[in-house]
Design a protein around this nucleic acid. Structure first.
Length: 739
DNA sequence: GAGTTTGAAACT
DNA sequence: CAGTTTCAAACTC
């Protein structure tokens, strides 16, 4: 499949090595315009990057994607996970060498995500944690059919092994070590070593489209072995392609290749094994990727050392589910990419959890979050569209972090460092985010960020368990008893999940659906809640008047709708009767906010600001726009996965996705949800920012009706949102001002 | 931290 | 589908 990206990439490749040199990249980073061009086609890439995090929402078990594997198992064998990836990679008819693949991989991650499924990007976040992993993973993905592989693979392996063995030593050299968390659960990195991978990502000059380099010190790049590795890869597919003479794999192509891989798995056992080996390090994740899990689960038993076997089994499983995976990707790779978000949230949660548990990890996580935000900002330069999304995400992360008890100051300090290198705009944006963090003084929030359950009888295998419901494994901070929601009980978890889904296919779906996306559902129905978002099932509150977190609607930051069976609804976010918060009782809302919802409200406001950046009035009057969703589900309860998903994803989206995929079940895949959120949702919102009215039509009632254009349907047109992106950037300042 | 309240989830 | 029970979070003290 040749995509514009590919072409671009090729063009890039043709460019001399100079372009790929760190210095050149850095210079390029300085000129956003250029990057934008390059990036333009790649917009999705960015998403992947940003959202690489594991989807909080459980995807249907049957759906298997690379992402899944990654996300799924915090503790799952790397091999397994990797195998999934491999399966994808294998399936790919890639023509490039491993080296090429590596290069392409990096590019993919940063540059060409579009073609790449979200999973890949996720890889980057997730498992790629390892320095080596980055390369390997890439290889794994791209590897499929590398014929020259032997040569390159070996080298790669060596690198990987080498790194794995002495990751830290290498890092020590890197200046970034301090900044970049070694162990970033957040990112899904298992071990500190994994951080290196992340490192590499940042360090890597990436595609011109995305330049983290600007953020990163050049020196670091040079110094850090990892960087070098990355560099080689990063320097560009160009180099590799040229040097290795292997079939050139354009980044774009790579992305496609990845997709293809998923579709056509061509198992390269050797490569797979290697990959698996590498991947293992970064696999530890709290997030459960049920989709993958289902697939992986089969293999889980074997996980440990039977590389070839595992990879194969994975492949087989994947092959069996080929339709799903391929469909997903084919249907809309872009969309699929989003899953990362979900993961991301989970990752955040995990991070938080870990924060409580492990200081080191926490710090790293923080840093990561910061880095992510920063990176997002940078990326924004090249890709505004993504930028906003990223910003939103980052902001959320930050918020979460703050909630978690992470000290914003630390993050801020680092962020500032980055800022120093960035343009004023970026600085402002970053500051904005930081301010949000700082503001979010959330005493209790600290814990909320991460999911911690306290189950005593459910074994964490029922929806009662928030961790389980969120699609994440229970972790140390949890106070659960007889917990089965652990990687070691993966099979049980998957089985249970399936069972629950069989009973209620939507059981793991986001609880809050954004109306804009689900406009079809609510949009025109005057009877429905004015809010832009609403609970998928509605609440059934009797005594809380929908003013406490007992109420899921309230908890989710959305107003009640006609679907609710609540009594005496006084939901501050919108009453069942349709009255908007402000309209109904501003004070009430205020109180609620003060009590604990404040965070949500704040986030909401912030989000709105982001969305409506230029129009504060809108924010003040939700009714006008339609009730703001839970812009930041994270805050609401610190339960990123649920809220987040809910907020972002919409039933409509799901439906569309499923249709595309051709697999109804696939609809539930987290990736889609995330995708929706990332690419579609946020971008749209951002778009709206620039011109709130543009995408949003206001009905006489004041309800928001998404315009056709706005409809995120996932059409390519949507993605073209660059214009908006540019506009969105300016908005930040205004937002900051507001705050 | 223990106990109560609450409403979703699960069960019948 | 409705009623009941179970469960764990949210809340109160």
């Amino acid at each position: 499949m040749d995509t514009p990206q590919k072409n671009q990439i090729n063009a890039v490749n043709t460019n001399s090595i100079f372009e790929h040199s760190p210095v050149f990249n850095f210079i390029n980073s300085l000129s956003p315009i250029k990057y934008v061009k390059k990036a333009a086609p790649i917009t999705q890439t960015f998403n992947s990057l940003v959202f690489s995090s594991p989807p909080s929402v459980f995807t249907s078990p049957h759906v298997s994607s690379l992402k899944e594997s990654r996300f799924m198992n915090r503790h799952i064998d790397v091999k397994k996970i990797y195998s999934n990836e491999e399966a994808l990679a294998d399936s790919t008819p890639l023509h490039g060498n491993l080296s090429e693949i590596q290069e392409s991989t990096y590019q993919r991650i940063f540059v060409s995500n579009a073609a790449i499924e979200l999973p890949q990007p996720l890889k980057y976040n997730c498992g790629r944690a390892d320095k080596a992993n980055n390369l390997l993973e890439l290889h794994g993905e791209a590897t499929s059919d590398v014929q020259e592989e032997g040569y390159e693979t070996d080298s790669v392996e060596r690198k990987v092994l080498h790194e794995g063995i002495e990751p830290k030593s290498e890092r020590s050299e890197c200046d970034w070590d301090g900044l970049i968390p070694e162990s970033t659960d957040l990112l899904i990195f298992n071990s500190p070593n994994e951080a290196g991978a992340f490192h590499a990502l940042f360090l890597k000059p990436l595609d011109s489209s995305v330049n983290f380099t600007s953020l990163l010190p050049q020196t670091t790049i040079n110094n850090d072995p990892n960087v070098q590795i990355v560099d080689s890869g990063a320097s560009g597919s160009d180099h590799e392609n040229e040097d290795r003479h292997s079939e050139p794999v354009a980044v774009t192509e790579t992305g496609q290749a990845l997709d293809n891989v998923a579709m056509n798995s061509i198992p390269n056992e050797k490569t797979d094994d290697e990959l698996v080996y590498v991947t293992q390090r970064g696999l530890r994740r709290r997030c459960l990727d049920f989709e993958m899990a289902s697939v992986l689960g089969k293999n889980s038993d074997d996980n440990s050392n039977t590389d070839s076997t595992t990879s194969q089994s994975v492949r087989e499983s994947i092959a069996n589910e080929k339709q799903l995976v391929p469909t997903k990707r084919n249907s809309d790779s872009r969309k699929c990419i989003l899953p990362g978000i979900g993961l991301h949230l989970n990752a955040l949660a995990t991070l938080k959890d870990r924060n409580s548990t492990k200081i080191d990890e926490l710090s790293s996580g923080r840093q990561l979050s910061l880095l992510c935000s920063t990176s997002s900002l940078q990326i924004s330069t090249s890709q505004e569209h993504h930028h906003l999304a990223l910003v939103a995400v980052s902001s959320e992360r930050e918020l979460d972090l703050s909630n978690n008890g992470v000290h914003p100051a630390e993050d801020c300090s680092q962020a500032h460092e980055y800022l120093n290198q960035n343009s004023p705009k970026r600085k402002r944006q970053v500051q904005f985010l930081l301010s949000m963090l700082m503001r979010k003084s959330d005493p209790a929030g600290e814990t909320e960020g991460c999911k911690r359950c306290n189950c005593k009888k459910s074994k964490c295998l029922k929806l009662y368990c928030e961790c389980f419901a969120a699609g994440v494994y229970c972790i140390e901070p949890c106070s659960c008893q007889d917990c089965f929601n652990q990687a070691i009980h993966e099979d049980t978890v998957l089985q249970t999940r399936k069972q629950i889904e069989s009973r209620n296919p939507l059981a793991f779906a986001p609880k809050v659906i954004r109306s804009s996306e689900s406009v079809t559902e609510v949009g025109d129905d005057p009877n429905k809640t004015p809010a832009s978002a609403r609970h998928k099932r509605g609440c059934n509150c009797k005594k809380s008047s929908c003013l406490k977190k007992y109420c899921e609607c309230y908890q989710g930051g959305v107003g009640c709708s006609i679907g609710c069976r609540c009594e005496g609804c006084k939901n501050a976010f919108g009453r069942k009767d349709g009255s908007a918060l402000i309209e109904v009782d501003p004070e009430e809302e205020t109180e609620a906010c003060e009590k604990g919802v404040a965070e949500k409200a704040l986030q909401k406001t912030v989000i709105q600001n982001i969305e409506d950046h230029s129009d504060p009035a809108l924010v003040s009057t939700p009714s006008r726009l339609s009730r703001p969703l839970l812009p930041l589900p994270f805050s609401s309860k610190g339960k990123p996965p649920r809220s987040f998903v809910a907020t972002i994803s919409g039933s409509a989206l799901f439906a569309s996705s499923s249709q595309k995929l051709g697999k109804p079940n696939s609809v539930w895949s987290q990736s889609k949800h995330f995708q929706t959120v990332t690419d579609d949702e946020i971008p749209d919102v951002l778009r709206n920012d620039s011109s709130p009215i543009a995408c949003i039509k206001t009905s006489p009632n004041g309800k928001r009706i998404s315009s056709p254009n706005c409809d995120l349907g996932s059409s390519p047109s949507r993605r073209g949102g660059r214009k908006l992106i540019l506009q969105s950037i300016p908005s930040f300042p205004s937002l900051t001002n507001h705050q």
